[in-house]
């Protein structure tokens, strides 16, 4: 789909919108069929990029975006908001979180690959890749940590995914996963501590002291 470059009137976008809304409304589980999921992914992926591009062209000052903002914008564009149920919205966000995560990680991995490739055969690189490296690396690090978290507790991984990549509220995540809001809260609390540690937060001074005292 190539909206936002001339075919940006509502007519041109509606078929996708319809399709999207239809597929979404038909879903009744968190894990939809692979084919449907793939189709949604494609739509969503294109749409997210199209939004990015649209904003770039619409305003030369395309500001830094949070993925969550992009996802919400995509929702407004892809779904008939007027008729969509809150369940549809939740479904959408769960999917979008996955798509967004995939897109960002993919992008980061690509930059890292370029960076590595570039070391062997570099043709006039500016230092841009240096500057981008860190962020790309961080994203990949986050992704690796998320995967490890998933091995420890799969639901926590999904909670973090929904929260971080689609900005879903605790209630929405709870609805989507069929658990209480409180459980989501707790999952998020523990998962975020774990991630903070995995991603290299330095523990405060003296963190290990209680143990020492007990031992002593």
């Amino acid at each position: 789909m190539c909206s936002h470059d001339g075919s940006d009137d509502p007519e041109a976008r509606d078929p996708n919108r319809d399709e999207f809304t239809t597929i979404l409304s038909g879903l009744d589980q968190v894990e939809p069929a692979k084919a449907e999921l793939d189709r949604l992914f494609v739509l969503l992926h294109d749409e997210l990029r199209s939004i990015a591009r649209g904003q770039l062209q619409a305003e030369a000052n395309a500001d830094t975006l949070q993925p969550t903002a992009l996802v919400h914008e995509a929702y407004l564009r892809l779904v008939h908001v007027e008729t969509a149920s809150s369940w549809t919205r939740t479904q959408f966000l769960v999917l979008a979180a996955r798509a967004m995560r995939w897109i960002l990680v993919d992008h980061a991995r690509q930059s890292l690959a370029q960076k590595r490739g570039g070391r062997r055969a570099r043709v006039s690189l500016d230092e841009a890749s240096e500057a981008m490296k860190d962020d790309a690396f961080d994203v990949v690090e986050l992704e690796d940590a998320l995967l490890r978290l998933g091995h420890l507790d799969q639901r926590m991984e999904v909670v973090v995914q929904c929260r971080v990549f689609a900005g879903m509220s605790m209630q929405e995540i709870g609805d989507a996963l069929g658990v209480s809001r409180r459980t989501v809260h707790e999952d998020w609390k523990v998962a975020s501590m774990w991630l903070a540690r995995e991603l290299g937060g330095t523990p405060p001074a003296g963190a290990a002291e209680p143990r020492k005292r007990e031992d002593g």
Binding site: T64, L142, K189, S192, R197
Partner: peptide
């Protein structure tokens, strides 16, 4: 883990510019 409470903030990492997407 408790020592890391409230320290997970992926927003900077995840901030993307339209250009980069």
């Amino acid at each position: 883990l408790l020592a890391h409470e409230g320290k997970f903030d992926p927003r900077r990492v995840l901030a993307v510019s339209a250009r980069r997407l």
